[in-house]
Nucleic acid binder design. Structure first.
Length: 318
RNA sequence: GGCGCUAUAGCCAAGUGGUAAGGCGUGGGUCUGCAACACCCUGAUCCCCAGUUCAAAUCUGGGUGGCGCCU
């Protein structure tokens, strides 16, 4: 069976993925599918740098702005939805362009990871969390060593979130997480993908862009948006977004505004670094270093040529 | 000009004779159902010179810089 061609734009936050994605979609008759764990939520427009209608400039964008903030969301949900969207776009004879910075979502999608249907059980989690606070992380880790030594070997005892998930899977199914993991890569990917990774040789240039963008977000009403989210409360996945939790000390009169804004910048820089760590290990990524181009047109053109060549698509150079 | 205090990693900082805590930042890394999460790893010979001592970041003298006070 012929594979479905997809283009992927990855890279750290504030590297210009959104704009490039739209350019690519325009050039190859494509539609954008976001791969971003936070832009999926309704509202939260400013903090997540969600593309505005002007930025989308007529290109359809999928998996953005469709979920209520109080709903949890996971990689498995993402992969399921993204697979559907890719097929729909493919049937319309258009090119799916995956654009986003959530490394786990992207790699799970293009590697066609099979997620077993094991939802998390809040009761089990709650109980395990209580156990860990009462008896310590080591105690839970010892349990994991007994029931799933393979997973335990890959985790640090302090990584409570993952230790709990592994124990949860074992408790619900009686099977080890490591077994499921081994089975998750058995189905070959139905996609033929090019992955463009955006980065700078000079890390400071990325950081400068991040710092500037946070200031612009503040000008555009980040504080007000954050206050609204803060007052609404009750969130799961969405509560992780950078730009809200950092302002809570300010809302509670425990810190001044500038301190909190600086914290947002710092957290965003750290996030960008983690994203780069994630993407760097993906050998399939074709890196495009932004500081090698003196203007946007050359940069866009370079990316378009690369994609055309890798996927054997037609692209006429203007 | 005089007097006092002070000088430890990019920043904050403990250590007052036996051979450099910790925190933050930075950099690197891990990741299969909350991933913008969670977690791990990461640095100095203590301003300079001379002296005392078996041994000095720690004591003494001098120099230099900073801070404060005085005239």
């Amino acid at each position: 069976m012929e594979k479905i061609k997809i283009a992927v734009i990855a890279g750290p936050t504030a590297s210009g993925k959104t704009e490039l994605g739209v350019e690519i979609a325009k050039a190859f008759n494509g539609e954008v599918i976001s791969a971003d764990s936070m832009q999926i939520y309704k509202g939260m427009d400013i903090a997540t740098a969600k593309p505005s209608p002007e930025e989308m400039s007529g290109i359809p964008h999928h998996l953005i702005d469709f979920l209520e903030r109080d709903r949890a969301f996971s990689v498995a949900d993402y992969v399921e939805l993204a697979n559907e969207k890719i097929n729909e776009i493919y049937k319309r004879n258009r090119l799916p362009v995956i654009v986003g910075g959530t490394g786990l979502y992207i790699s799970s999608l293009i590697d066609n990871i099979q997620f077993p249907d094991i939802k998390s059980d809040p009761e089990i989690r709650k109980r395990l969390e209580i156990e860990s606070t009462r008896f310590g992380n080591e105690k839970l880790f010892e349990q994991l060593k007994k029931c799933d030594p393979e997973t335990a070997a890959e985790l640090h005892p302090n990584n409570l979130v993952r230790v709990i998930r592994a124990l949860e899977v074992y408790e619900i199914t009686g099977r080890k997480l490591s077994e499921y993991k081994a089975e998750s890569r058995l189905v070959e990917s139905p996609y033929e993908s090019v992955i463009i990774g955006l980065n700078y040789h000079d890390r400071q240039r990325l950081y400068d862009r991040i710092n500037l963008r946070v200031d612009i977000m503040v000008e555009n009403g980040l504080i007000e948006e954050s206050r609204e989210v803060f007052e609404a409360g009750e969130m799961r996945t969405a509560a992780n977004a950078i730009g809200y939790k950092e302002l809570i000390p300010y809302f509670e009169n425990n810190a001044d505004l500038q301190t909190c804004i600086d914290k947002i910048k710092q957290e965003t820089r750290r996030y960008a670094k983690r994203q780069l760590t994630w993407f760097r290990k993906n050998a399939k990524i074709q890196w495009v270093m932004l500081d090698e181009f003196d203007n946007k047109e050359k940069f866009f053109d370079y990316c378009k040529k690369n994609i055309a060549k890798s996927l054997s698509l037609c692209y006429n150079i203007k």
